[in-house]
Computed example of a mutant assay.
Amino acid sequence: MTELGEFLRVRRAALQPADVGLRGYGARRVPGLRREELAMLAGVSSTYYARLEQGLSANASEAVLDALARALELDADERAHLRTLARTPTRRRSRPRPDVIRPGMLRLIESMPDTPAVVLGRRSEVLGWNALGHRLVAGHLPFDSPHRPAERPNMTRLLFLDAHTRELYSRWDDEAQRAVSSLRVLAGRSPDDEELTRLVGELTVQSAEFARLWARHPVANCVSGTKQLRHPEVGELEVAFEVLTPPDDAGHRVLLYTAAPGTPSAAALDLLRRSRTASPTGVSYGAS
């Protein structure tokens, strides 16, 4: 089954007949709407819809995609994801080259010492960070690890497989949901990305929590919000985050963190900035 078919199947299973104004008759072998029920709601033939879900039909029209989105009650991010899956051709996979941060981007985040900043690649791997960004999210790792592709941290891998990172997030379940939702968006945009496929496979095998969330096919383009942190040096704090995307096709994202002025969180962030316990190599940060 294709990614498009899997997305349609999972979303169809999440809806009950009563949710969409239909009467359900008798017990169902599988949860959710039947294919023919969804096809009827979308105004397409059940045969065509079955072929679409099975990956046997391509190039669905905008009208059909809009009808399916309405029938499945998709939100804006999910609608965009549906279109991406329907329009993204499957290409022959090639071994990707290690990604690199542009020198100008690195100088930019280093010029903002009071604002934690992390630059992420197409797979949520860390391409670079400034000193405060490093101290905030991964000070237990070597500061220069993003510059060595073989040791480059990945924010999603850290969240699910690294004990220090798990302890950092007071609301870990919310953070995990957000991370998987974002990774689904990235995977939909790059279905031929060998490294991304390998990452998903690794996390699915090593984390039952990731596997459970991934199977639900959540989708959200998380570009802003708040994070509740339990930092080992400065304690509890709440930070807002913004994700900035450079206007090129590199797929890089700049993650910036701020705290509301005059709040205990802002004081904690300033204390972390001034702290001498976090060395540039990160070896003294919460190490065990």
Rank of each mutant, 00 (worst) to 15 (best):
Ala267Cys: 06
Val205Asp: 15
Asn59Ala: 13
Arg273Leu: 06
Thr226Gln: 07
Leu74Pro: 07
Pro246Asp: 02
Ser124Lys: 01
Glu3Trp: 05
Asp162Tyr: 01
Ala63Ile: 12
Gln228Cys: 09
Gly282Asp: 04
Gln177Tyr: 09
Arg152Asn: 04
Leu229Cys: 01
Ala163Lys: 03
Arg166Phe: 02
Glu195Asp: 15
Ala67Met: 11
Leu203Tyr: 00
Glu73Phe: 12
Trp214Thr: 01
Trp129Cys: 00
Ser111His: 14
Met105Thr: 14
Ala187Val: 05
Thr197Cys: 07
Phe7Gln: 03
Gly262Leu: 10
Met1Lys: 11
Val180Ala: 01
Ala268Gly: 06
Arg166Glu: 08
Ala67Trp: 04
Asp144Leu: 14
Leu41Trp: 03
Ile109Met: 05
Ser224Cys: 09
Gly139Asp: 06
Leu183Ile: 09
Arg135Ser: 15
Pro113Ser: 12
Leu41Asn: 12
Ala211Glu: 13
Glu236Gly: 02
Asp249Met: 15
Glu110Val: 06
Arg97Cys: 08
Glu167Asn: 01
Ala42Lys: 00
Arg122Gln: 12
Ala27Pro: 10
Ile101Ala: 12
Leu108Trp: 08
Gly188Ala: 13
Ala131Ile: 05
Asp114Val: 12
Asp75Pro: 10
Gln228Lys: 07
Arg184Cys: 10
Glu194Gln: 11
Leu168Cys: 02
Arg34Asp: 05
Arg189Trp: 10
Ser288Cys: 03
Gln177Gly: 13
Leu158Trp: 04
Gly188Ser: 15
Leu132Tyr: 04
Val205Leu: 13
Leu229Trp: 00
Tyr25Ser: 15
Val118Arg: 00
Arg51Glu: 07
Ser207Phe: 00
Gly55Ser: 10
Asp249Gly: 15
Arg135His: 05
Leu255Val: 07
Ala50Gly: 12
Leu186Cys: 03
Thr47Cys: 07
Glu194His: 09
Pro191Cys: 11
Arg107Pro: 05
Gly139Glu: 06
Gly43Asp: 07
